[in-house]
């Protein structure tokens, strides 16, 4: 294992993490809800109850607005370099949707909220999806 010191951003990543944790706390404190993006998105898909629709839409709108505020006011330069394209990219999109629905959560729901509550299910889920992600990257970068 070799650490990539030039890409390592400990301070900004920790600060970003603190904000993500604060966002999860706010949603639980006010709405009593787990901040799990896959679950919140799934709740927007039909059939759904309109009462439960609005807070989900407000949360999703906020997520879209946050990074736009950063770039609109020139506060932070958001870098995004793609690692996949074409068929692989859409296969990945399908797997992310399928997997988070079948496994009841993603990086936010299991990774931030579940681990914070010391949920054993979430610990298993995180260990499993990180391992699967490591293997996928290993195959793509080092075997193909």
């Amino acid at each position: 294992m070799t650490i990539n010191w030039t890409e390592f951003t400990p301070l900004m990543s920790f600060l970003g993490g603190v904000l993500i944790g604060a966002a999860a706390f706010i949603l639980m404190l006010t709405k009593g809800r787990i901040m799990g993006v896959s679950g919140i998105l799934a709740g927007l898909l039909p059939p759904n109850s309109s009462f439960e629709l609005f807070w989900r839409l407000a949360f999703i709108a906020g997520i879209i607005a946050g990074p736009l505020l950063l770039t609109r006011f020139g506060l932070y330069n958001i870098e995004a370099v793609a690692v996949a394209e074409g068929g692989i990219l859409y296969l990945a999109a399908l797997l992310v949707g399928l997997g988070t629905a079948i496994g009841s959560g993603c990086t936010s729901g299991h990774g931030i909220c579940g681990l914070s509550r010391l949920s054993v299910r979430s610990m298993m889920a995180v260990a499993t999806f990180v391992l699967a992600g490591v293997l996928a990257v290993f195959v793509m970068r080092h075997l193909m």
Partner: peptide
């Protein structure tokens, strides 16, 4: 919560 989450994701990389 969503705005803070979105900003956090961006800063975190």
């Amino acid at each position: 919560s969503g705005i803070i989450f979105g900003i956090g994701l961006a800063l975190a990389g």
